[in-house]
Design a protein around this nucleic acid. Structure first.
Length: 288
DNA sequence: TGCCCCCTGCAG
DNA sequence: CTGCAGGGGGCA
């Protein structure tokens, strides 16, 4: 579930606390969650915390970078040395976060301050990959990644071309393609298509070119709003402090099937598009 | 280019 | 107990 806004929220949280700190130890609890030379991590200082699409890039000294992909259920939680058990908000996820490491902790780093950084990942799809900076340009996923949503390269022309190239695919499938634009996942795809009044199953080639500029605008708006509200915590997602986001309350369609549309009161529906659960308002979003 | 699979937990 | 959650790799 972490999509661009969630990853960006984690990035900002880590940037506040991690810069300049040295990694002094830690442990890999699940081998496939970490790749690269662990020993080269020890003694490194964090020089920057970046992001590309849904990937976190923890820049270290000696020209190394740790790539963190949270995939479905990954969490990066920073626990200060004096980190006292947090007051539970009553949500089930709070209990797990109170105790770290927990059953889902796959990797953790110990920092010079005595703080620890935990990589938790229930479904183990996520990973941390330690690379030399020289390997970044050829890292397969990063190399193919499309522009950031706010990049000039994510233009009306570019999206129109992507829609033409894959004219028989659904618009939703194209928006989920990380090579077209980086960072959109299932939640923000559904939300931006709803706000654009475009049915997710519309064949990409059939979308009038005049609708592309507003669609890009809505994508940017909803992602910005996602960041502003600290991301969607529908299930596992928490920020670097282990706290849940508030964006789930702002959603118009995702996870609201069977409930009334916030704009027209029509009962929202759930269907399957691009192999994903897809949420629509049958009235606001015209049939393809 | 679309679909199965990776994996785990939880709703039905 | 089955099916679903859904990012992205790999394959037909």
């Amino acid at each position: 579930m972490p999509e661009l806004p969630e990853v960006e929220t984690v990035r900002r949280g880590l940037e506040r606390v991690l810069l300049g700190q040295q990694i002094v130890g830690g442990e890999v609890l699940l081998a496939r969650s970490f790749s690269g030379e662990w020993s080269e991590l020890i003694g490194r200082k964090v020089r920057e915390v970046g992001r590309r699409g849904k990937v976190l890039l923890i820049g270290l000294d000696q020209k190394k970078t740790a790539l963190v992909h949270l995939r479905m259920t990954g969490q990066l939680i920073y626990q200060p040395q004096d980190g006292s058990p947090r007051e539970g908000g009553g949500h089930p996820s709070d209990a797990l976060i109170r105790k770290l490491p927990n059953a889902h902790t796959r990797v953790f780093w110990e920092m010079s301050s005595g703080a620890r950084l935990f990589f938790n990942d229930q479904r183990t799809f996520g990973s941390i990959k330690l690379l030399e900076d020289t390997e970044l340009p050829t890292e397969p996923f990063l190399a193919k990644l499309g522009p950031e949503p706010w990049d000039k390269a994510f233009s009306v022309e570019a999206l129109h071309q992507a829609f033409q190239r894959r004219s028989r695919s659904s618009v939703k499938a194209v928006l989920l393609d990380q090579e077209v634009v980086a960072g959109i996942g299932n939640i923000y795809a559904d939300e931006s298509l709803f706000l654009s009044r475009v049915h997710p199953a519309t064949p990409a080639g059939a979308l009038p070119k005049t609708q592309i500029r507003p669609l890009i605008a809505k994508i940017r708006e909803v992602l910005e709003r996602g960041i502003e509200y600290g991301g969607v915590s529908a299930r596992d997602y928490v920020n670097a402090e282990g706290l849940r986001g508030r964006m789930q309350e702002q959603l118009y369609v995702y996870g609201r099937d069977g409930m009334p549309c916030k704009l027209c009161d029509t009962t929202l529906q759930k269907l399957r598009t691009a192999g994903r659960g897809t949420h629509i308002c049958p009235r606001c979003q015209s049939q393809p």
